[in-house]
Design a binder for these strands. Structure first.
Lengths: 189, 189
DNA sequence: GTCTATATAGTGATAGAC
DNA sequence: GTCTATCACTATATAGAC
C-alpha cells in the first residue's frame, strides 16, 4: 500500500501533523516545513490539501470495511467474532495510528467522499450491532441494552490510537490478550 | 454557573459549533451568523476567540477536578468509587455535552491555560489510577494491567458526549444503571 | 522536483458612528 | 449593543523560471 513515493511521504507527514492539531489547524506551510521544502512544491505531488485528507481516511475506512465483512460472514461464535474485531482495531492502530486519528477527528472535513465515508461507518456499526444481537439472542452475551454495549466497545477501540502512541512500547501480543479480557469479561472479581 | 448573559449565549453557541467542526474550522463569522449579529459585535462581549475556548474547557475541567477529589477522599469501596466516577461523567455529559466535545478535541488549542489544563487532566488520571490500584491490591478488581483497565474505562467515559447527543432521548437513570454493569462486569455470560 | 512571485479569498480583531 | 469599514495577516493554490 505504501509505495514510498514522495506523495506517500507527504501524506504520512501530514497525518502526523493532523493528529497533533487537527486538519483545520494545519497549513500547507506546516506540512512543507516538516518536509523541508516550500509549500508550493507540495502541489507537484498532490492536488490539494483536501486530497491528502481523503487519501488518509478512505484508505483506512476501506480496510475496516473489508475485514469486518470477513468477520461477519465467518461461522465463529460471537465471542470469537468480538475477539477478531478487537484484534482488527489493534492491528490497524499499530500499523497506522496517525491515520486513525484523522479518521476519528477529521472525517467531517471530507467533502466529495463524505457520503461514502458515512456509509462505510454506518455499515460497520450495523455489522457490529448484528454480531452483538446474535450473541444476546443465543445467550452468549448478557441481555443488556445492545446500544450501550456497542458504544462502550467501539469508543474504546476507536480511541486506541490515543493510548498506543503515548506508551511507545506496548506489546501488541499482550494487548491482544488483555484487551478482550477487559472489554468482554469486565474487571470486577 | 450559566447567568444567561449575552456572553454565556455566545459561549454556548460557539461550543455547539466547535463540536461539529472543531475550534480551528469555526470562524468568528460562523458564531456571529448563528447569533444573527455581525462578527465585530461579538467583541463587545468577549475579548477573543481564544477566550471562548478557554471558558468552555476550563470550566468543565475544574468541575471534574473538584468532584474527583471528593470521590478519592471518600471511604467507599473501589466498586462504589468507580460507580461514582461513571455517574460523574454521565452527569456532566447530560448537562454540557458540547463543552465536553471541546475539552476532548480542542484542548491543544488552549494557549495561556494549556499547562493548567494538562495539570488537571494528569491529576485526574492519577486519581483514577490510584483507585484502580487500591482495588487490585485488595482483590476487588482483577489483577490485570491497570493501564489497560484505566484506558478502556476512560475512553468510554470521555466519548459519552458523542453518543448521548446522537440518541436524544436516552434516559439518564437507565444509563447510570446499565453503564457501570457493562464497564465493570463485562458482557460475556 | 523545487523555487520565487503572486493571485484570490479568507482570518481575527479594531475604530468609531449610531 | 450593533453596525460599517477596514487593517494586517494568513490561507490555499497557480504560473512559470531553473
Amino acid at each position: 500500500m505504501n509505495k514510498n513515493t514522495r506523495k506517500d511521504k507527504i501524506i504520512a507527514v501530514a497525518a502526523k501533523l493532523f493528529k497533533e492539531k487537527g486538519y483545520s489547524a494545519i497549513t500547507m506551510r506546516d506540512i512543507a516545513d516538516k518536509m523541508e521544502i516550500k509549500a508550493a512544491s507540495l502541489y507537484n505531488h498532490i492536488q490539494s490539501k483536501q486530497e491528502i485528507l481523503d487519501t488518509i481516511i478512505i484508505q483506512i475506512a476501506e480496510q475496516f470495511t473489508a475485514k469486518m465483512q470477513t468477520i461477519v460472514e465467518s461461522k465463529e461464535t460471537t465471542y470469537q467474532k468480538l475477539r477478531h474485531i478487537i484484534e482488527l482495531h489493534i492491528d490497524i492502530t499499530i500499523e497506522n495510528a496517525d491515520a486513525l486519528a484523522a479518521l476519528n477527528n477529521d472525517w467531517m472535513h471530507l467533502e466529495g467522499n463524505l457520503a461514502y465515508f458515512i456509509q462505510m461507518r454506518d455499515a460497520y456499526e450495523n455489522n457490529f450491532r448484528s454480531i452483538l444481537n446474535t450473541g444476546i439472542a443465543n445467550g452468549e452475551i448478557v441481555a443488556r441494552d445492545p446500544e450501550i454495549i456497542l458504544f462502550s466497545l467501539l469508543s474504546t477501540l476507536r480511541t486506541l490510537y490515543l493510548w498506543y502512541t503515548k506508551k511507545g512500547g506496548v506489546d501488541a501480543k499482550k494487548l491482544k490478550e488483555d484487551m478482550p479480557e477487559t472489554l468482554l469479561n469486565g474487571i470486577i472479581r
